[in-house]
């Protein structure tokens, strides 16, 4: 029994996406409101070359800026004035990170949504599992009590 719950619990913890195993998208803010962007392989430390980078607005999903990683140098881009994501495209997949804010803050802000889906659904999952555990506990308790009552009667 315990094993089964454990499996379902494990299943429910696996809710991530937009990450590619073994690939790092490194974003570091530097002076005068620019960011430097690098893609690195985790294992070999090899830098990505030629991949497309896009800054995408969180507000209306419009592409703010597009550029390509070149020659192993970190790519430097100006920080946009609204909340944005940094997309790195590799083959058919993409890696997404939330971009850092400029010094004076964004002019237009949306609240961070990074973990929103994960948190909502994770809570819902665990909520149902807790409900399941409490209800079955309650049922078993009732069952045992009834049995006791029956055996006392005789």
């Amino acid at each position: 029994m315990v094993i089964k719950f454990w499996f379902i619990f494990l299943l429910s913890t696996q809710l991530f996406a937009h990450k590619i195993e073994g690939l790092n998208l490194i974003i570091t803010p530097i002076e005068s409101d620019t960011i430097s962007i690098e893609g690195k392989m985790k294992g070999s430390g090899k830098k990505l070359e030629g991949n497309k980078i896009a800054l995408i607005s969180m507000i209306d999903k419009r592409i703010l800026e597009e550029a390509f990683l070149e020659g192993g140098k970190p790519l430097q881009l100006k920080i946009p004035q609204e909340s944005y994501w940094v997309y790195l495209y590799v083959g058919d997949q993409d890696v997404v990170e939330e971009g850092p804010a400029p010094k004076e803050g964004f002019k237009k802000i949306v609240t961070s949504q990074k973990e929103r889906a994960f948190r909502t659904m994770g809570t819902l999952c665990l909520g149902f599992i807790t409900l399941f555990l409490t209800i079955s506990g309650y049922r078993i308790y009732g069952y045992k009590r009834r049995k006791k009552a029956v055996s006392l009667r005789f």
């Binding site: 429910s12 996406a17 659904m121 819902l124 999952c125 149902f128």
Partner: peptide, 21 residues
């Protein structure tokens, strides 16, 4: 929806645990 995949996967697990309950 940028995190569509997480929503769908999450709902799948949530729905499954709903049936468990």
């Amino acid at each position: 929806l940028f995190d569509k995949e997480i929503w769908i996967r999450g709902t799948f697990y949530a729905f499954w645990s709903f049936w468990l309950f």
